[in-house]
Design a protein around this nucleic acid. Structure first.
Lengths: 334, 334
DNA sequence: CTGAAAGCGCTAACAA
DNA sequence: TTGTTAGCGCTTTCAG
């Protein structure tokens, strides 16, 4: 590239008139180096624009002081906030973080895992991953892995997640407390095992509303999905008086359908989102939403990973945090 | 970690009963290897769970086939979309991408640049960076750098950005065409050189509305900033009939202030955002907004970087893309 | 306090 | 077609 070859530790040593090992000592701030030579080395480093090679270093040290963080979807603000908590703690433990995006595709995600593994990250964090169990098990063979945002059970893989059944139960309890009985749910997954949907159904039954369960099934994680689902609910013979959406984005899409139909929120229909993302907090929206302690999730994830890296083997631990409900202005008595 | 030392190419060779170089050939899919040995090597690789070390490989190859992408703020969807375009093109050129977040702090950003440089990425992309010119110049010494989303002038650093003066001019022209004359601007930066603000002012003058210029200065890139700014505008003796916000988030915040004041949009006040992020497209919001061709920006950024990496030296090139206006439902005649 | 030497895991000539 | 050899840039004993 820019003209010459990159300077190596050798070049620095030559220029400072010392040996390579002396430079290495200075680099790592060893105490027993004469001031005179230290200064010479530092000057050479600056003049040359020298920067140690992470590759060479990690090759001999057998560690990289780096942890890889794989986010399923860069567009989802949920991940950005978990990452904030993670990064803060990683820094305080002396790790740098490297991010990879799965672009919502399991194939991309698996490639990114592969890249991180080849880089020999000291540990790997997967945020709501979609990688196949095979790839996951394979990764665990060589590298400590912790999963956040999902409580997948994989041998030796710790998880940090929040209790989604409890989250939906909180939302249902809030709506029931306001006097709602026809409470519908817009689901975010067509899978049979969708903890939010299951939580909703269980909570409805627990409130004696088992017969009122109404779910729109599908991958309604988007604005558009929420919009379509809400329209479908509105065409019911007796539409619900309250709707619990799988996430905030779907809730906001539902809001759009209600606008369009001239239905007032919360006077005519109450609406609850999930995730308490910044969307929910926007004043024009003011969505009541179930909150997950994202920063805390990030912190605990890093703590778990650190435990594994520093020799904590043993069975997988699964930490489950408690969600809470943030009430704003989209819920009211029917 | 997981028990034993990680398998090396040596272990694979031993197990397959061949030499290291043979394994290396198989790894890279060389044509002239007997089927018999190839199969043996592949079996050994699988059995051992072997994965080549990127460090060792890049040390000898003097390239990593990796480009580092530094995003200023993981929370901003603008970056995620530029990244989508970038990644797609990077993949097609045979590069992997590694992401780093600057967490909106120049200190963090500079650390992340440092990490990428130590990793010896083949090239570096900075999305709307805040790194100091010194760090930037230093990085360019050893590694090709391209900046996207900003047209900073740094020697040998290409940029890809959109014409923000034109973007704001489009918005102002749209509003003037609808009959507005009192058009205010909520700025996103207190800096004297804010291209969006400058574009707004120039467009106002060009429409003969120089005397009507009204700017709320500040870092109003957030929901809250937009809310406060809008409240300030509403307390003017003669409030504007149209408002151009620095970005969509601020526009949505402004929408909140208007809701609260019982002012209808677009009947009483028209509102235009900037970025045409997914926020603008949400049905409940339907914000008229200036669009930047983000995917294209990503693609061109990667193309420019590739040009530099493959020996294209020379002066910095600055590509400036044309924005366009997406009209939705927050603008109407006064 | 400083230097010499060995080797981390891999690739790339070069031989065979 | 396959094996041997010599490093890539760095850290780390071990001597001096």
């Amino acid at each position: 590239v820019s003209g010459a070859r990159r300077p190596t530790i050798h070049d620095v040593a030559d220029r400072a008139g010392v040996s390579k090992s002396l430079v290495s000592l200075v680099l790592r701030g060893a105490p027993n180096v004469s001031d005179h030579r230290r200064a010479a080395v530092e000057r050479a480093i600056t003049e040359l624009g020298y920067r140690p090679s992470a590759a060479a270093r990690s090759l001999v040290q057998r560690r990289t002081a780096t942890i890889g963080v794989l986010v399923a979807d860069l567009h989802n603000p949920f991940f950005a906030e978990v990452y904030d908590g993670l990064r803060a703690h990683a820094t305080s433990l002396g790790y740098r973080t490297l991010l990879g995006s799965g672009d919502q595709l399991s194939s991309q995600e698996e490639e990114t895992v592969e890249t991180m593994l080849e880089l020999r990250v000291d540990g790997l964090v997967l945020l709501s991953p979609r990688v196949s169990p095979r790839v996951l098990r394979d990764a665990v063979q060589t590298t400590p892995v912790v999963i956040a945002g999902s409580n997948l059970r994989v041998p030796r893989v710790d998880t940090v997640s929040s209790d989604e059944a409890e989250g939906t139960a909180l939302a249902v309890a809030h709506l029931v407390g306001l006097g709602h009985r026809r409470i519908a749910h817009i689901a975010g997954s067509s899978s049979r095992r969708d903890p939010r949907r299951e939580g909703y159904e269980a909570a409805m039954r627990a409130s004696g509303l088992g017969a009122r369960v109404r779910v729109i099934i599908g991958d309604h994680n988007t604005d558009e999905g929420g919009y379509e689902s809400m329209r479908e609910l509105l065409s019911d013979r007796r539409p619900p008086t309250a709707v619990l959406a799988n996430n905030d984005l779907a809730a906001v899409g539902a809001l759009g359908a209600l606008d369009e139909a001239g239905i007032r929120v919360p006077e005519d229909i109450s609406l609850v989102g999930y995730d308490n993302s910044y969307l929910a907090g926007i004043r024009h929206i003011g969505l009541t939403s179930v909150n997950q302690p994202r920063l805390e999730m990030g912190r605990l994830t890093m703590a778990a990973l650190h435990r594994r890296i520093t020799g904590g083997g043993g069975r997988a631990r699964h930490e489950v945090l408690r969600p809470d409900l943030v009430v704003r202005s989209t819920t009211a008595p029917p």
